[in-house]
């Protein structure tokens, strides 16, 4: 474990807590893409298959349980909670995430480090996570009103993977054999997808104005 990975995990945890706070306290999911939340639930479900078979550490197991529990409960809230579901803008959140899932599955079957069920699922979860934010970014472009919590959520979600990139550089420099192009490239693509959001978010924060994404 290194400081980059730990801060990356904490940033990721913060993003999930910010989202749960928004949904649980103000009972609203306005501006949040259910498609992205479903993709993240799929990411954790396919990445943490070995949660009970391969024990890494107490920290690792606890964090996996937290990410699984929070991602599925957010999907549940947005789909079934009688008040929260009313604030979900179904008409705007129309991204067909199946068009993201299928190519990721095909790519994971072709490009992976080992053709085993667990490894292909792990690789699939990496590819899906790389593109999972797309429905959310599309929704932000459409709905002009990006409230603070949503902006903070997306920012933290993007920042965690940027910190992971520093973690991979650190591990590459300090550990022999630590070379994993698939992880690195999908992590880089994921972070780059946030590039323009980061640009507008930091500018709006510096100029102390509301976050507006160009149409």
């Amino acid at each position: 474990m290194n400081i980059f990975r730990l801060s990356g995990d904490m940033t990721h945890l913060m993003s999930v807590i910010v989202l749960l706070l928004k949904i649980h306290t103000i009972k609203s999911c306005a501006g949040i893409s259910l498609k992205t939340q479903e993709l993240y639930a799929l990411v954790f479900a396919t990445r943490y298959l070995d949660i009970f078979t391969d024990f890494v550490s107490v920290y690792n197991t606890i964090m996996k349980l937290i990410f699984l529990a929070t991602s599925f409960s957010i999907v549940w809230y947005m789909r079934h909670h009688k008040i929260v579901r009313r604030s979900y803008d179904k008409e705007q959140d129309t991204f067909r995430h199946l068009f993201l899932i299928l190519p990721c599955l095909i790519l994971a079957l072709v490009v992976n480090e080992k053709f085993t069920f667990k490894e292909v699922m792990w690789t699939f979860s990496l590819y899906v996570e790389a593109v999972a934010i797309l429905p959310q970014l599309v929704l932000l472009q459409r709905t002009k009103n990006i409230d603070n919590l949503t902006g903070q959520y997306v920012f933290l979600l993007g920042a965690y993977r940027a910190l992971y990139i520093l973690n991979w550089i650190y591990r590459y420099l300090t550990e022999k054999h630590f070379v994993h192009w698939i992880t690195w490239i999908s992590g880089l693509v994921q972070t780059l997808l946030y590039a323009d959001f980061f640009y507008y978010y930091i500018n709006s924060w510096k100029n102390n104005v509301r976050l507006q994404l160009p149409a």
Partner: peptide
């Protein structure tokens, strides 16, 4: 083994 060293990440 080597393959699993990065499966220690979340």
């Amino acid at each position: 083994d080597i393959m699993d060293d990065y499966h220690d990440e979340l």
